[in-house]
Amino acid sequence: MEAPLEEIEFLARSQNRVEVLRLVAAEPHTRQELATATGASQATLGRILEDFADRSWVRRDGRRYAATATGELVADGIGELIAVLETEGKLRPLVAFLPTEEFGFDLRHLADATVTVPTRTRPSAPLRHVRDAIEGADTLRAFSHTLNEQTLSTVHDQVTAGGYAFEAVLSRSALDALAADAHLWSQIRALSRHSNATIRVARGEIPVAALVADETVYLLVRDDHGVLRASLSTGSTPVREWATDRFDRYWERATPFDPLEFE
């Protein structure tokens, strides 16, 4: 019996091995079906299936090959490892800026997340991604330590046009920053007076910038200097449950927004 790391290396050396094992674990396949699905030659498939049979990972049933119980176990394990590494690769450029200590969910639940980063030709791509989403939403809830001009403008226009209901818990530092700009302050004041908008002030700092637009969660990732590094969006149920619970907790402890406190 080979050591576990040697078995992982055996599979990792060949994408065809991984694909064949996952295919036969899902349902029985003929060699021709495996060749069509993987693009591997019959000679290559013969060697792979022979190696798998030696490990008791596959069995032959007539013309079809199916995974054994242990073969399914290995297929599930390698599939999970691949998914974890794909998620890690997606998050690797951002891990230094992610407030992971605040996340009440496993990072595996960001596997389906869309990560939008600034580029030279589209420096505002993360904000554009968020703006496009909230323009088409029916409800929007937010808790954040900042509220940028583009998002505030979009929310203001949508709420005043009767687009949706808006609820937000903002940190005092976010409101102080808005109060320092006459135009932004007039927008947040007008927004707070609207019947479809409710703004509350957090008792302490909020270390995460998050929005929940309908069923999708958006996280704005900034570095220590406040520079926007990326936006993440996901419809993952555990992430949405975390964001909803965190919003409710901030909301219960927050106080109603009174512009006079900041003027």
Rank of each mutant, 00 (worst) to 15 (best):
T244D: 15
A66T: 13
G39P: 14
R17L: 06
F143T: 02
A174M: 11
A69N: 04
G163K: 02
Q158I: 03
L220S: 12
Y250K: 02
N196V: 05
L91S: 08
E261L: 15
R122I: 01
T119N: 03
A25G: 10
R55A: 11
R193K: 13
P28E: 13
G79A: 09
W242D: 04
D138V: 04
H225E: 15
E6V: 07
A202F: 08
Q15K: 14
A209R: 04
A40V: 09
A26V: 04
V221Y: 01
Y164H: 10
T36N: 07
D258S: 10
I199Y: 01
N148V: 10
R203Q: 08
I48R: 07
T255Q: 14
L85H: 08
E88D: 10
H225R: 12
E72Y: 00
D224Q: 13
D248A: 15
F103W: 11
D176H: 14
W242E: 13
D132C: 03
E19C: 07
D245E: 15
H29R: 08
P4Y: 08
R22Q: 15
S56E: 14
P207Y: 14
A111L: 07
R13A: 13
V84F: 05
A243W: 04
I48L: 10
R47T: 15
E9P: 00
P256Y: 04
I134N: 00
V117N: 02
T154R: 06
Y250M: 07
V169S: 01
E102A: 10
A230G: 08
Q15T: 12
G46W: 05
T116S: 03
V84S: 02
E27I: 05
D54M: 14
W242R: 13
D54K: 14
D248S: 14
D176W: 12
G136Q: 15
F247Y: 13
R253M: 09
A125F: 00
A209F: 01
A180V: 13
H183K: 07
L11Q: 02
D54E: 15
A96E: 05
I82T: 11
T121V: 03
R200H: 14
